[in-house]
């Protein structure tokens, strides 16, 4: 059985997501899906468009923060959501392609993706981490 891809865990003031993935790529995909679900986007009835991006960072945690920040920036400035991710991670570099879907609005705001106690752990079940978002 696959583990739950992401779940919100209690935090007094901000949002915290526990994310799991069998592979590193699926961890990054589930983190993106989890973050998007927190924002509660309302999608427009419009055809998706193909997008891609490349990132590299000093370590995997920074790569994860950069990946989510990149998506947040696109949500805010281009008003788009995402689906059908294809992610490839080599070392601490990422290549991602995905479909962007126009959104009418998002109900919630995330100020930032934080490094608070951020650690990507690899165990027998795959990869897991907890991400705290400043809201």
């Amino acid at each position: 059985m696959h583990p739950t891809p992401y779940e919100e865990i209690e935090h007094t003031a901000d949002w915290a997501l526990r994310v799991r993935g069998v592979t590193l790529e699926s961890l990054f995909e589930h983190a993106a899906q989890g973050m998007l679900s927190l924002l509660e986007p309302g999608y427009l009835d419009s055809s998706p468009t193909g997008r891609s991006l490349e990132l590299s960072a000093i370590d995997l945690e920074t790569l994860l923060v950069s990946w989510l920040e990149e998506l947040l920036f696109l949500i805010e400035t281009e008003k788009i959501g995402f689906q059908n991710y294809a992610i490839r991670i080599e070392g601490t570099s990422l290549e991602a392609s995905f479909e962007s879907v126009p959104i009418e609005s998002i109900k919630k705001d995330i100020k930032a993706v934080t490094y608070n106690e951020l650690e990507i752990v690899h165990d027998q079940e795959g990869y897991r981490t907890t991400i705290v978002f400043d809201v």
């Binding site: 007094t12 003031a13 901000d14 608070n116």
Partner: peptide, 9 residues
């Protein structure tokens, strides 16, 4: 005070 992210609020 309450829990923040890194430094307490």
């Amino acid at each position: 005070v309450h829990q923040g992210y890194g430094f307490p609020i």
